[in-house]
């Protein structure tokens, strides 16, 4: 008895028990309702886009790990999230070949080159999305109306465009509420926006489901609630003020909140822990900055939607925020940095 080998390790010897893969798994759970709704709203085409993105991301992660001689990191679940998020931010009839390129670049360019999970300066899914936006601006702004007839049986020629060839858009296309507003000053009904009865990217339309997913993660303490609250709050207040100044020129704050990718971005992309600041105050500054940029780009910029760029810029700024915003160390005077 008692001759067995002991294990030694550093204190503390107990752990809270929430590990990184648990967090990632829960984020995937929170995203699933949106996937289901998206497929319901946009049909099988959307499903193909999401699957393509998922496979591309997970496959790239695995292959790159194998190539660089490291153990595969797909089990941490971050690539799955990237894949789902990328898929959810693309238009429903986005060509699969472009989706795959986006997925590969999300992982390779967005994460791998910077040293993998934890070192990526930008949200990988958004890196992929931004690349696609810059590379294929037409395809990525070709929308498909929600709840159209035959959406489950009709396979879009655009989705299955031959690799590297220009997608041919057959049938009707729809405009997103944001572009309709930007170019024709037409606003959509807030209720339709909240329920997701409008056109847009695959996963961004139902503000309600997104909010539910976010709340699930917040209650499980797997997401920093300050980020979505500060982003949405800033957008609401700022656009509210503008709306009060001139309701004809500026859209209502509800329209701003529920339209486009704001909800999805604020809940699932800006909250990417790696790209956001680490301190509570820093996180709020980050959120306000993103909210501000969303309003500025949407209202005065050239693009109808600015959430993606706003979050990427927020990501770029967050090292600075972390550098400047440091909590006062216990027992130090406030004057010291």
């Amino acid at each position: 008895m008692l001759s067995k080998t002991l294990h030694i390790s550093s204190s503390p010897h107990i752990n809270k028990g929430i590990s990184t893969d648990t967090i990632m798994r829960n984020v995937v759970y929170a995203l699933l309702p949106m996937v289901v709704f998206a497929v319901y709203a946009f049909g099988t085409n959307a499903l193909f886009v999401i699957l393509a993105s998922l496979v591309a991301c997970v496959g790239t992660e695995h292959l790159l790990c194998v190539w660089s001689g490291k153990p595969s990191t797909i089990s941490d679940g971050s690539a799955v999230i990237t894949g789902l998020l990328l898929g959810l931010t693309l238009p429903p009839i986005f060509p699969i070949w472009m989706t795959i390129i986006g997925g590969i670049l999300s992982i390779a360019l967005g994460k791998f080159v910077f040293g993998g999970l934890g070192s990526n300066p930008f949200n990988p899914a958004l890196v992929g999305r931004a690349f696609l936006q810059a590379a294929f601006p037409v395809a990525i702004t070709t929308w498909y109306p929600a709840f159209s007839e035959g959406r489950f049986t009709n396979f879009s020629g655009s989705v299955f465009a031959f690799p590297f060839s220009t997608p041919i858009v057959d049938g009707i296309t729809g405009a997103t509420p944001l572009s309709a507003f930007k170019f024709d000053k037409v606003t959509a009904d807030s209720m339709d926006l909240a329920l997701g009865l409008v056109s847009g990217s695959i996963g961004e339309t139902s503000a309600l489901l997104i909010a539910l997913g976010g709340i699930y993660l917040i209650t499980r303490k797997m997401m920093n609630w300050r980020i979505p609250v500060s982003i949405l709050g800033t957008v609401f207040v700022l656009s509210g003020i503008l709306f009060l100044i001139d309701p004809k020129l500026y859209p209502s704050p509800f329209f701003m909140l529920f339209s486009g990718g704001l909800m999805l971005g604020a809940m699932f992309m800006a909250t990417d822990m790696v790209g956001s600041p680490i301190t509570p105050l820093g996180v709020v500054i980050y959120g306000v900055f993103i909210g501000l940029l969303v309003v500025v780009i949407r209202i005065w910029g050239g693009l109808p939607e600015g959430v993606m760029y706003a979050i990427l810029l927020g990501n770029a700024l967050s090292p600075q925020i972390d550098n400047l915003i440091r909590p006062r160390i216990y027992g130090t005077k406030k004057t010291k940095p």
């Binding site: 360019l109 690349f131 810059a134 590379a135 395809a139 465009a161 031959f162 590297f164 060839s165 220009t166």
Partner: peptide, 19 residues
């Protein structure tokens, strides 16, 4: 490249230069 080739606009943009 064939006519049907979808151009990668990003390549002629500044970002494409860096990449």
């Amino acid at each position: 490249l064939p006519e049907s080739f979808e151009k990668w606009i990003i390549m002629i943009l500044p970002a494409g230069g860096f990449f």
